[in-house]
Every structure is written in structure tokens, then in C-alpha cells.
């Protein structure tokens, strides 16, 4: 079996949902950012409320407690599983079946954060996440949630070639997708590499300039002139 980060969930309708679980590296950075934001807010709260004496300090402590435990829960539930840090890094929390996370699982996974934190700085969580394929820390395992990468937004394709050419009728969906991928990513390939790749298909396409031919086929597929 090929090693891959992407895992597909099959829905009851038989459709495949590709999900990409996120490992600890990107999550550590997201968490770091959230910590910075949280502690920035806590500092401001303490500075302002300490003017009110001991009463103010008490209120500040309560606010700090709430912020510490419910900051991630609030954002995960109300923002489709994205805390500000996660949003920045392009990841989000979902349930095991890919649905948006709800209050219960979110609360559970964030309360169990301190278990993952032990003995220091998420060592348990990191080791736990390396022991399963979805990179779940203990809190995720208990709550039935996982952290995945967001799909990058698709941009309007532009292949820098005019004209259309019919795609050979016997090309399967995956094969058509390969043609499209070539056209889309040719911007990032050197001209030599482009022609090298396109020449592989020369016997199938049978055109003078296979690079242009493939791009024109891609034009046909996306409906460009």
C-alpha cells in the first residue's frame, strides 16, 4: 500500500471524502499562535482590572480561567472548528466522520488538553499522535475528533493557450485529471520539463506540439476559449 497523508472517508452514498489529517508540527504552530493571542488578552485584562484592587484581580483570575479553557471551545464550535491560530495555519477540527465539530466533543478534547500536555509541552500528545494514522492526540481519541487541513481554494484556471481540442474519448476521469493538472501546473515547470512530460503522451495524442495540444484539451475541459 502506498504511504499517503490523505485518507478517504466513504459516505453512505458511496462518495469518497478525501480528508488530510494534520500532524503535530503545524498544530504546534497553531497552538503557539493561540497561546500568544490568549496571553495577550490575559495580560491586558490583568493590567486593567488590577487597578480595581483585589476584587479586580479576582475577576481577572476568573476571566483568565474561562479564557484558558473555553477559548478553543468557543472558536471551534462557532467558527467551524477553527481557532484563530488554526485558521492562520489552514487547519481545522472536525468529527471523525468529517462533520463540523459540536460542543460536546470540542469540550472533551480541550479539557483533555492537560493530559496531552504532560509531562511537559505536549510530549504525551505528540507521542500519542505518532501512534495512529490520523495524528490524534489523546483528547482527539476520546472525543472522536481530528484535525485536518483545509482544502485550498480553487482558482480560476488560465493555461495561456488559446483554442480548444477535443479530449480523446477513451480517457478516463483520472486520465483527464492528469491532463488538467499538467495544464494547471505548467506555470511552475520549466519549458524543457513541460515538453519532456508532454512527449510521453505523443503516441497517444499524435500532435505536432503536444504541450499546446494538452493545454487546448484542458481548455475544452474547463470551457475556456
Amino acid at each position: 500500500m502506498l504511504l499517503d497523508t490523505r485518507q478517504s472517508l466513504e459516505t453512505p452514498e458511496g462518495a469518497l471524502l478525501p480528508l488530510t489529517p494534520a500532524g503535530f508540527g503545524v498544530r504546534v504552530l497553531a497552538q503557539l499562535l493561540d497561546i500568544l493571542i490568549r496571553y495577550g488578552i490575559v495580560t491586558v485584562i490583568f493590567i486593567v482590572l488590577s487597578l480595581l484592587g483585589r476584587m479586580g484581580t479576582g475577576i481577572a483570575l476568573i476571566l483568565a480561567f474561562l479564557l484558558e479553557w473555553f477559548y478553543p471551545v468557543y472558536f471551534e464550535v462557532s467558527r467551524q472548528g477553527r481557532t484563530p491560530g488554526k485558521k492562520w495555519m489552514g487547519i481545522r477540527v472536525v468529527n471523525d466522520d468529517g462533520t463540523p465539530i459540536t460542543f460536546g466533543p470540542s469540550l472533551l478534547r480541550n479539557l483533555l488538553r492537560f493530559v496531552d500536555f504532560l509531562p511537559m509541552l505536549y510530549l504525551t500528545g505528540i507521542i500519542a499522535s505518532l501512534c495512529n494514522r490520523q495524528f490524534k492526540r489523546l483528547g482527539d481519541l476520546a472525543a472522536g475528533s481530528m484535525v485536518i487541513y483545509e482544502a485550498p481554494p480553487t482558482r480560476e484556471p488560465s493555461f495561456e493557450v488559446r483554442g480548444q481540442l477535443p479530449v480523446p474519448a477513451d480517457f478516463s476521469t483520472d486520465e483527464q485529471r492528469a491532463l488538467l493538472a499538467f495544464a494547471e501546473r505548467s506555470k511552475y515547470l520549466s519549458a524543457e520539463r513541460q515538453s519532456e512530460l508532454a512527449t510521453i503522451l505523443l503516441p497517444v495524442i499524435g500532435s505536432k506540439d503536444p504541450v499546446i495540444a494538452i493545454k487546448q484539451m484542458a481548455n475544452t475541459m474547463v470551457g475556456k476559449q
Binding site: L3, T5, R6, T20, F24, L130, P152, R185
Partner: peptide
């Protein structure tokens, strides 16, 4: 003959693939 799924990944996703490779 590759034993990993070849596709363009985001940078951090590549790091995750590294973790899987190290495990394997």
C-alpha cells in the same frame, strides 16, 4: 516503484508524510 503516494502537497503536509515515513 514508489512506495509513497506521489502528489503535490502543502509544505506542512509534506512534514506529516515525513512522520509517516519515519514510522514505516
Amino acid at each position: 516503484q514508489v512506495t509513497i503516494e506521489i502528489r503535490p502537497r502543502s509544505a506542512w503536509e509534506a512534514v506529516d508524510l515525513g512522520l509517516l515515513m519515519a514510522k514505516r
